[in-house]
Simulated scan of single mutants.
Amino acid sequence: MLEQLSRLPAQSLDLDTYRMDFRDNFWKSDMSWKLERQLTFKEPSTPSWVAMAEGDWEKSLQLAEQMRAGRTEHQRELDRCGIVQRRIRFVSDPPTPYLQWELHLLMIWAQLGEQIRVLPAETIAHLETLTVLPEVVVLGDRSPNPVMYEIQYTDGVLSGARKFTDPGLITTCRHAISHHWQRGEDILRYFPRKIANLPQPTPHGV
């Protein structure tokens, strides 16, 4: 069903509306499930990404580490509210410059408590005969009113989302994301083995 999501009707949200709607629903949920498929994005509002895109890898990693304190506070609030975050991140070998950078951030998130696993993108080739899987977030596992967002990007930059509220559709997609997550490798094992010792990326085309 995930591969058909883009063809199904949904409520379109611009960026500001999406952020507000997501925030309101996130803090009422018990769990979030996130599927990340694209291998390259742009995050011009994140100083660490900007440093990576400008070719200053050492500065990028320093700025990423400085994000740990804020993320620690975020995780404390998640724990206080009883919210669990799970993410399946599809990866390539070798990674794109963006992916190599993001995995450094995700390693920090995982050390603090987010449950992140990775899978090679080729493992879902049979689902992507027409297009790649969308970027999806499901809020609510046992919640009575779950919501789901197909996240939208313009030229690689976050630009909004499409919102779904049909419980049956959301359950089906949540199960699909959970299936991929269960098959994935914990990033806490994957990162030291595949990413930690890579040379700095050359951000051509970032």
Results as ranks from 00 to 15, higher is better:
26 F>R: 13
161 A>M: 15
158 L>W: 12
189 R>V: 08
35 L>Y: 04
154 T>E: 05
181 W>I: 04
200 Q>V: 09
168 G>R: 09
8 L>W: 04
95 P>C: 02
95 P>S: 05
147 V>A: 03
133 L>N: 00
135 E>R: 00
88 I>K: 00
46 T>G: 01
201 P>R: 03
142 R>K: 08
168 G>D: 05
139 L>E: 09
97 P>E: 02
152 Q>S: 13
189 R>C: 07
123 T>M: 12
113 G>L: 06
178 S>M: 10
172 T>S: 11
62 Q>Y: 15
16 D>N: 01
117 R>W: 08
34 K>Y: 06
163 K>E: 04
180 H>D: 14
171 T>D: 02
11 Q>V: 06
170 I>A: 10
8 L>Y: 06
112 L>M: 07
73 E>A: 12
145 N>P: 00
153 Y>H: 09
39 L>P: 05
184 G>Q: 15
76 R>Y: 00
80 R>E: 06
116 I>L: 12
115 Q>T: 07
172 T>E: 14
160 G>I: 02
76 R>D: 05
113 G>P: 09
128 E>C: 04
16 D>S: 08
68 R>T: 12
73 E>G: 03
39 L>R: 01
123 T>V: 15
143 S>P: 04
131 T>A: 14
81 C>N: 07
140 G>I: 09
2 L>D: 00
161 A>G: 05
57 W>G: 05
129 T>F: 02
48 S>R: 11
204 H>E: 05
134 P>C: 10
182 Q>M: 13
205 G>S: 14
170 I>W: 07
206 V>T: 04
22 F>P: 11
77 E>I: 01
93 D>Q: 10
113 G>H: 10
68 R>Y: 06
29 S>K: 02
32 S>N: 04
196 A>I: 05
22 F>C: 00
160 G>C: 14
73 E>M: 11
122 E>D: 07
201 P>I: 15
114 E>K: 15
200 Q>P: 15
136 V>H: 03
201 P>H: 02
114 E>T: 02
107 M>V: 14
125 A>T: 11
136 V>G: 03
17 T>L: 15
105 L>N: 07
176 A>K: 08
155 D>H: 10
52 M>H: 10
22 F>S: 01
175 H>W: 08
138 V>R: 10
89 R>S: 06
131 T>R: 12
191 F>E: 01
176 A>W: 05
204 H>C: 08
53 A>Q: 08
202 T>V: 12
153 Y>K: 10
112 L>D: 02
